[in-house]
Design a protein around this nucleic acid. Sequence first.
RNA 1: GCCCCGGUAGCUCAGCUGGUAGAGCGGCGGCCUCGUAAGCCGCAGGCCGCGGGUUCAAAGCCCGCCCGGGGCUCCA
Length: 618
Amino acid sequence: MKILALHVDHVEYEPIRPESSIYEEAERKAHRIEDALLLLTCVEKGDDAEIAIRALRELAEQARKLGASRIVIYPYAHLSSNLAPPSEALSILRAMRDEARALGIETYSAPFGWNKRLEVSVKGHPLAEQLRSYERAGERAEEIPQALLLEERLESYWYILTPEGDMIPVEEYDFKGHENLEALARYEIQKSRAVLEEPPHVSLMKRLEIADHEPASDPGNLRWYAKGRLIKSLLEQYVTEKVIEYGGIEVETPIMYDMNHPSLKRYLHKFPARQYIVETEDKRYFLRFAACFGQFLIAKDMSLSYRDLPLRLYELTRYSFRREKSGELVGLKRLRAFTMPDVHAICRDLEQAKEEMRRRLKLSLEVMEGVGLTKDDIEMAIRFTRDFYEEHKDFIFELVRMFGKPVLAEMWSERYFYFVLKWEFNFVDCQRKAAALSTDQIDVENASSYGITYVNERGEKMYPIILHCSPSGAIERVIYALLEKAYLAMMRGEKPMLPLWLTPTQVRLIPVKPEYLDDCLKILERLEKAQIRADIDDRDESVDRRIRDAETEWIHYIVVYGERERKGGLLSVRRRATGSVEKISLDDLISEIRKEIGGKPFKKLPLPKLLSKRPSFR
RNA sequence: GCCCCGGUAGCUCAGCUGGUAGAGCGGCGGCCUCGUAAGCCGCAGGCCGCGGGUUCAAAGCCCGCCCGGGGCUCCA
């Protein structure tokens, strides 16, 4: 609770019109009170009547000392950005008024919930103006990182950068042919959102038995079913392999850290996210919101030579935790616990950092392509400080050219964060909303905060530049993008599907009658030997029915096996991609699938191969 | 956080202004033995999200809370 106490010669107010959903009855006429202590009172979240009474008693005493014979309680919201809901605020204000009357002071109250004309004449003595703040005893104020507060008043300038080297203010750019980029720009700048119901990936993730909400946990912490776990695990494995090919050195670090550790404390305040807090008997820990801490703490203990750089430390966090506001959580798109590959590159100087960033942009483009998102599916945004732009224009446009499409740019007047440049790929979904996937940043601050140094050719200790990159973004978010993309295809009248290598069942075998089950089992064995996930729908259902079920599972290849196949030796294969049914040999089917999957990771199907024995998670 | 919408069988949902719960799918049993997107019949299954209130009577009305979705961050 905040109260601005003003000792006034007179105060005059006049209710004009109700302004809040909850407001008191009031007469629209001017009220004038002479020689009073005016209490401009703001009720904040978490306040209660007890605080209000304590405040009122203290200020009544103050009024007596000042020689003010009356007080005016005036609801005044403008003293806080953390207001209590109106209904609560009103009842707390009433508690104050009751207490004032109980103390026998002459009290006036301005009505709650009204827009009012206000005129005050404050006395000219040192104690005439005082701001008081009241909190519940022993309660800690909510910990909001400074960066969150700073972000709100940061000044941004928006442009479109083109591969041709133009920098065009967003409002002058013609978005024709770049509708997704336009949606991204609108989403980022105006924060305007199209109105639509639930995003389609939410029901898809449930129907396909990928993931679901877990009511027994905190919102934004999901449960993953067998198929979802498989898809997620394949993506995790894929990204990890790509990062290791690029030169990443994989490590594993703790998920919680001491809030009072000196280097962490500073970083905590430079990163705009809310934390989960874990309290033990004597300490407070926060759950990591990225892999930075663990890797930085490792790097600070290494004795690094310039010869070791760039050093690429990598971890795939399961999980990173961010306590997003409840209203911001959405399906797989925005979670409170998520899986994120995070690779840092410790570079000797800005030149090496730039070179490294080029490689990582290329890596990220490959990873996007690999998981099944093409350049048509993503839009790039680059953000940088004005100073960095002035000195490294060419480099920025080089990144734009590597992406090959116009890019949204945000220029900051000053550096508020630990980085001077960051870029990210955004996926624009069915609701025309954007979500960031891959990203990389140039960090010029944390080497010194964490005491990370290397020794140069002349034997001097130097602070490196650190790059922070997630080549895919959160794995859950990749699945969100793939599901939204599949839904968009469905809307265009195409068959929705996931990339073959991520589809849990790649081949479904359907024996026409039980007597063909043994043949199917042999085929299954051959497929599994070739690292293809297959299963057999041996349920006592019609062939039509089993085909339909396989289609609704988005299975790429459906093989119906009966007398004709046993005699002819060729398989009848229904291909999802084309919708056609063709006769081909098992060997040809295997090589077709192997070719399509290429070098992508393989994992066995973690479910019973016979559908008659397979449990349903729903 | 605030506002709006929703929570009814395992799932998806119906249930008008209060009179004590329904369908389809799924499950189970039986029949059918099937050739490229749902074969037929039967049976079981419900603290109507949770707690309180109003009422002779609440799934439906009122209050609070929890969970999901959407919007907002205006403001005493």
